[in-house]
Amino acid sequence: METKHPKRRLDTARDLLAKGYFAACCVLALSIYLAQRLGADLPGPINNYVNDLLCMPIVLKICQYAVRYIRSDRQLLLPKLLPLALTLYYCLFFEYFLPGYHDRYTADTMDILMYLLGLLFFYLMEYGETGKTSEYDGKAG
């Protein structure tokens, strides 16, 4: 029986993850949101942080899908600085601007860390370990 080389097995797992992570993130985020709405007693870290962690991969993937659709380019990658800029925008909006206007929102450093971890996950999934580059890097786009 043919056995797979460990590195090849890892590559296959990464390919599968890269293809399916968006759907998995959406399902997980929606499940947590529905559980919260239904008043389920979720453990603290899941209740407070998992959706913040999933937020950036979901938002960035939706943006990437939209740009690919508008530009008719299935292989298009976002310029590398753009996901970071959008993450900083979300950090400022949800953790600095909104808490000043709305009682429902509180500024939390852990949330910022979760956004950044989500960004890192997106980078790993989309640009890979080999450091793929976007043809729009360094251009106005």
């Binding site: 939209a66 976002l78 949800f94």
Partner: peptide, 24 residues
């Protein structure tokens, strides 16, 4: 309007606004 940065920031802003109303 065809700029990737403008498209992404516009969609990102819309989603942020949507999340704000869903959560609040």
């Amino acid at each position: 309007f065809y700029s990737i940065w403008v498209i992404v920031i516009a969609i990102g802003s819309f989603l942020a606004w949507l999340f704000m109303y869903i959560v609040a």
